Amino acid sequence: MMTITDVSVGYGAGDVLHSVDITAAAGELTVILGANGSGKSTLFRTVSGLLRPRSGRVEFEGEEITRSRSAAIVRRGLAHCPEGRHLFPRMSVEKNLTLGAYVGRRDRKRVRALLERSYELFPILQDKSNQNAGSLSGGQQQMVAIGRALMSDPKMLILDEPSMGLAPLVTEQVFEAIVGINREGIGVLLAEQNARSALKIASTGYVLAEGRVVLSGAAEDLADDPAVQQAYLGV
């Protein structure tokens, strides 16, 4: 579904990503592991059209999107749920969610159906639909952020550190939701520092270090790799 080929990205004079090659298959859950500063967020911002690479290309469903505008990328079926949630704290939960359907806002019936799907995935959000998003707990805000991304009805969902700052029980709930999303046939590209949980639910994984892919393969093989175990699993 997505192919990232020889992509290099930088800020100013230096590169953050160096000749990165990644493939995320249709309907699969692909995880990107890496420490802070490894380039995960830069990679996702590039894929979603927020940054332009110095070189290389990004293809989605066989069509190049390397220099497409973000709105056009969303219309193609690629949604990005960024690190840090970036909600509108003084707007209601429901208004935050419906903003995710902006590119298809004229089809009100479809927007309502997508909203109901978000509420089915995260029932607590329906109970709090009229509350300001800023009044929610961190876990509930993360649910709003994921739900908002799903409101564009994507074929692939990019999730950047969805478990950051969450309690273990809430992290488990979020990961269960991610698995449910993937079971609907939506491809997931997931960046996570919680390597143990991420590798359990992923089919394929990549390890980024200093902007380079240093390891890749089946998730279960990466979980058994001594270098991954030492760096990310505490073994």
Rank of each mutant, 00 (worst) to 15 (best):
V7L: 10
V9P: 04
A13F: 10
H18G: 10
I22T: 11
I22D: 06
A24T: 12
A26P: 03
A26G: 14
E28V: 10
V31Q: 12
V31Y: 13
I32A: 08
I32L: 14
G37F: 08
G37I: 13
S38Q: 12
G39L: 05
G39T: 12
T42L: 11
F44A: 04
S48M: 07
L51S: 00
R54C: 09
R54Q: 13
R54S: 11
R57W: 02
E59Q: 11
F60T: 14
E64Y: 05
I65N: 11
I65A: 06
R67M: 01
S68G: 12
A72Y: 08
V74G: 01
R76M: 09
H86D: 09
H86N: 09
M91A: 13
N96A: 03
N96C: 04
N96W: 02
T98H: 01
G104H: 03
G104S: 05
V111C: 06
V111K: 06
R112W: 04
L115Q: 13
Y119N: 13
Y119H: 11
F122I: 04
F122M: 02
P123D: 06
I124C: 07
Q126R: 14
N130P: 01
S135F: 05
S137T: 11
G139C: 02
Q140W: 04
Q141N: 00
Q142P: 00
A145Q: 01
R148F: 00
L150F: 00
K155E: 03
M156E: 11
I158D: 04
L159F: 01
E161D: 09
P162H: 01
S163L: 04
M164G: 03
L166D: 06
L166S: 08
P168N: 13
L169C: 00
E172N: 09
Q173Y: 04
F175K: 03
E176K: 15
A177M: 04
G187E: 06
A191D: 02
E192S: 09
A195K: 08
A202Y: 08
A202W: 08
A202L: 08
T204E: 06
A209Q: 15
R212V: 15
V213H: 05
V214A: 10
A219S: 15
A219M: 07
D224E: 14
Q230M: 03
A231L: 03
Y232D: 08
Y232W: 08
L233H: 07
